[in-house]
C-alpha cells in the first residue's frame, strides 16, 4: 500500500525527465522486456521445460503395469548399467555419429569444387545436392527401404550387373547400421555443403591467388587455405552433426518397424541398429516402462552435454576466427 503510494507520485514527474534520469526508463524497458519474452517463456515452459522436468522425475520412479508409479531412487540407472541392450544402443549411436562426422570432409570437398571460379552449372548442382534436405524423412526412409530391398531393390540389381550378389541391406545385422548411416550422409550432404559454400564465399580470392603464385597445388591450397578459413563453419556443422546424430530416431524407426505393429518385430537387424532414442521409444512407448525409458533418455542427454562441452573446449586448438 505504502509502496504503491510512494511509487505513483515518483513516477509521474520522472516521466518527463526520462531523458535525464535513467531509472524510470529502465523500469519501463524491463516491463516491455518481460512482455516480449512472455509468449516464448510461457510456451517453452509448458511444452518443453516442464516435460524435461517431468521426464527427469520419471527416471527416478518405476511404473506399475496398470499405470501409476512409485519412487525408485536410482534403481533405473543401476538397472540400465546392467542391461546389454543399453550398451549396444550406445555403441550403435556413437558408431552412427562417427560415420556422420566422416561426411563433413566430403561436404567441404564438394563445396570447394563448387566454389571454383567460373564453374558452369553451379546453381544446378546446388539444387540437385540439396534435394534430399527438403524431402520428408518418412519418404526418404521409404524410398531407401525400397532401394535396399534384397530381392527387387535397385542397389542389388546394379550390383548384380557387375556380378556381385548384394546382401539384404536393411535387415542384415552386420550391415544395416551402415546402410542407415549412408542414408544419413545422403540426407545431410546438401545442408552441410550449403553452409560451407557460404563460408567459402567469404574467403578473399587474393588468398587463393597468392597461394597459386607461390606454386601451391590444389590439394595444398585445399588443406592450407580452404580448411583453416572454413574452420568456424566446420566447427558449427560438427556441433550440429553430433547433436543430431546422437538423437537419431526417425530414420531407424521407419526403416526398422512397421508403424502400427510392435516396434521392430520383424527386423532381425534391430539390435545392431537400435539407437539410444529408439531404445527410449521402445521402453517408454511400447513396453510402457516409462521410468527406465526416461533414465535411458537422460543418459543420452548427459552424453550430448558432455560431447558438446568437450567440443567447445577443443575449438581453441583448431578453429581460426578471422
Amino acid at each position: 500500500m505504502t509502496h504503491t503510494a510512494a511509487a505513483r507520485p515518483a513516477a509521474r514527474p520522472s516521466r518527463a525527465a526520462t531523458r535525464r534520469g535513467r531509472r524510470p526508463g529502465r523500469r519501463r524497458e524491463r516491463a516491455w522486456a518481460y512482455l516480449m519474452i512472455a509468449p516464448t517463456t510461457i510456451g517453452l515452459s509448458v511444452f518443453y521445460l516442464w516435460p524435461i522436468a517431468q521426464t527427469f522425475y520419471d527416471s527416478f520412479t518405476s511404473s506399475g503395469p496398470f499405470g501409476g508409479s512409485t519412487w525408485a531412487g536410482t534403481a533405473n540407472y543401476a538397472a540400465l548399467a546392467q542391461e546389454p541392450t543399453v550398451g549396444q544402443a550406445v555403441v550403435n549411436t556413437f558408431l552412427y555419429t562417427a560415420i556422420q562426422l566422416a561426411g563433413i570432409p566430403l561436404a567441404v570437398l564438394v563445396a570447394a569444387l563448387l566454389n571454383q571460379k567460373g564453374l558452369r552449372g553451379r546453381s544446378v548442382y546446388r539444387v540437385l545436392y540439396f534435394l534430399p534436405v527438403v524431402t520428408m524423412p518418412v519418404a526418404v526412409a521409404m524410398l531407401w527401404r525400397w532401394m535396399y530391398d534384397g530381392n527387387y531393390g535397385l542397389v542389388n540389381y546394379l550390383l548384380s550387373t557387375v556380378g556381385i550378389h548384394g546382401p539384404h541391406w536393411a535387415s542384415d545385422p552386420d550391415i544395416a547400421l551402415y546402410s542407415l548411416a549412408a542414408i544419413g550422409l545422403w540426407m545431410s550432404l546438401g545442408y552441410n555443403m550449403v553452409i560451407f559454400l557460404a563460408g567459402l564465399q567469404g574467403v578473399p580470392t587474393e588468398f587463393y591467388e597468392a597461394a597459386r603464385m607461390d606454386g601451391a597445388g590444389p590439394v595444398r591450397i585445399f588443406l592450407r587455405i580452404t580448411v583453416p578459413m572454413l574452420s568456424p563453419n566446420i566447427f558449427f556443422v560438427t556441433i550440429l552433426t553430433v547433436i543430431n546424430s546422437l538423437q537419431m530416431f526417425d530414420l531407424a524407426y521407419m526403416m526398422m518397424s512397421t508403424p502400427g505393429s510392435a516396434a521392430g518385430a520383424a527386423n532381425p537387424a534391430l539390435p545392431k541398429v537400435r539407437s539410444i532414442t529408439y531404445l527410449f521409444f521402445q521402453k517408454a512407448f511400447i513396453e510402457h516402462d516409462i521410468g527406465f525409458g526416461a533414465a535411458v533418455a537422460f543418459v543420452l542427454v548427459g552424453f550430448i552435454v558432455l560431447v558438446t562441452f568437450v567440443q567447445f573446449r577443443l575449438q581453441k586448438r583448431w578453429v581460426h576466427y578471422v
Binding site: 511444452f47 518443453y48 516435460p51 524435461i52 521426464t55 547433436i243 538423437q247 530416431f249 532414442t277 527410449f280 521409444f281 512407448f285 526416461a294 533418455a297 543420452l300 542427454v301 550430448i304 552435454v305 558438446t308
Partner: peptide, 8 residues
C-alpha cells in the same frame, strides 16, 4: 540438448 522424443 534434449531429444525431441523426450517431450512427447
Amino acid at each position: 540438448m534434449v531429444p525431441a522424443l523426450v517431450f512427447l
